[in-house]
Design a protein around this nucleic acid. Structure first.
Lengths: 139, 139
DNA sequence: TTCCTTGCAAACGTTTTGCATCGGT
DNA sequence: ACCGATGCAAAACGTTTGCAAGGAA
């Protein structure tokens, strides 16, 4: 399915900015891009799209459930194309972000929520550390 | 030990703003206050301390390991006096924040970090949900 | 043609900084 | 008296909004 069909299915009119931005996130499924970085990529691609539009579109895509917004520890949000649920492991030295999924973790969260009489809706789980065994790109 | 001694031990000169701000956080160990809320409390207490100073002091206290900075999902950080390690459960309806500690969770995080060859330094784990059984203050 | 969408610039709220003054030690 | 700490105002930062012009259906 093309990104344009994806947009239509989400009830969003197919416009140039929406299509371009979704393309970028789709083409970089492993990346966690800030609004500014996305805007820069658009500029690189000779697209004249305003930063305000990038923010507006990202918000719409997030509401439509097509992308996921992450607020890691910096003061800038990052966006990624929506995949299966996962959490993040971040190397504080080289910035590498690893996505992982752990069923035991999900179950444990439910158990904890039950204990405190909460109905769990979502969670944020981010592990901060440093790559071991020389795999760090900033050693 | 008085807060002034705590400041001295941390290598920080004992000043009026530092003492006052530490007092507020100490007096409200269960609260998660923003810089602005702390500033308001100071004003309420007839203390004339600038907001910029509140930010500066909070940063210093955090570096000294006396307080903990939290960045939940809003665009405002909150601070709490440093206690034993814990994670948070937040009601998205009434804003209630519950602190919890779960050993299985800590162990699981280590296990996951090992799997991806990371040396785990810290983590953020926040569960978002809604209070059940009529305990929600905003039902 | 109809609205929704966009670009631009200006506003916004939080946080940081420059600088002259103040205050602990 | 020293040098760090503070208050104030202004800047910086990421993000949002108002508005007139543009574009998809």
């Amino acid at each position: 399915m093309s990104n344009n069909d994806t947009l239509k299915d989400a009830g969003l009119k197919v416009t140039h900015p929406r299509s371009e931005i979704l393309d970028i996130l789709q083409a970089n499924p492993e990346m966690h891009l800030s609004a500014d970085e996305i805007h820069n990529k658009l500029v690189d691609n000779k697209q004249s799209i305003g930063l305000a539009t990038v923010y507006r579109v990202l918000t719409q895509l997030e509401i439509a459930g097509l992308i996921q917004k992450n607020q890691f520890s910096d003061n800038q949000s990052s966006y990624e194309i929506k995949k299966q649920h996962h959490d993040h492991l971040i190397c504080t030295k080289c910035g590498k972000i690893i996505e992982f999924m752990n069923d035991d973790l999900e179950k444990l969260q439910e158990k904890i929520s039950d204990k405190y009489q909460f109905r769990l809706d979502s969670h944020v789980m981010t592990l901060f550390g440093v790559c071991k065994n020389g795999s760090c790109q900033n050693e």
